[in-house]
Write a protein that binds this DNA or RNA. Sequence first.
DNA 1: TTATAATTAGTAATGGTTATCATTATTGAA
DNA 2: TTCAATAATGATAACCATTACTAATTATAA
Lengths: 131, 131
Amino acid sequence: MKTRKHSRQRDAVMNCLMARHDHPTADAVYLSVREEFPNVSLGTVYRNLNLLADSGEIRRLNCGHGPERFDGDTHPHYHFICRECGQVTDLPMDVLEQMNAEAQECCGGQIDNHITYFYGVCRECLDKAKE
Amino acid sequence: MKTRKHSRQRDAVMNCLMARHDHPTADAVYLSVREEFPNVSLGTVYRNLNLLADSGEIRRLNCGHGPERFDGDTHPHYHFICRECGQVTDLPMDVLEQMNAEAQECCGGQIDNHITYFYGVCRECLDKAKE
DNA sequence: TTATAATTAGTAATGGTTATCATTATTGAA
DNA sequence: TTCAATAATGATAACCATTACTAATTATAA
């Protein structure tokens, strides 16, 4: 197996994800990391995002449209996606673990986890619509 | 606005999705439709899948990896994805509408619906692993 | 140091999906 | 039953997000 070596570019990717909470795309992370490493390659960003996601240090989000997003917060939590502006926000509610048990009963196989995305219109877009 | 004209290719796409319950990808639908229309174009399949999905006659599924899938069953229901074989199956359990209300409370915006994917290992893959 | 192997920047390639366009099919009205 | 208007098609090119490749660089452990 491969031993991981330290890399300052990977640190920058990780730091970016810990610092921001808007669930950036790979491209957004790339733009961010480029401020510190102007010649960083987009491939390097992708490679490290995948490395970190595969090792469980960050999480991948698939909101149903648009490119993949990434989340530095690995605690189980739900997300809300505004269908107007597309922003992805965390929902401060508990994950319903019993859903897995319910699914288990009608599934036959083994349920490990679930992922839920809520869709609607965010506060800002609602306010904008009122004007 | 555009009035929709009838098309036999679109019928074939729709029929394919009503007939099978394995949530096929666009390419799988394409192969299916080609049995009736040997020169149907992949673009035509994509165009009609999007048309039908946008008008609510079918549903798009994003399982978190791999290409988009489509579902002829538009009733709200949950899906299970086997991480071994990748198959996507319907879960015969009720959708928890109250989840939307819970999310609403901590959201600020307006929650319209939610999508949940359950992940794990299906019966067949569990059995295979035992051998 | 130095050897080894992981990582990188740069770039080409890939895969899924969408756009373009000339031709064909569907439709409603004459 | 024409016939014009226009939606839909097949073929293909373009697009975009992501991955693969490669020679050069960097981190690590001996």
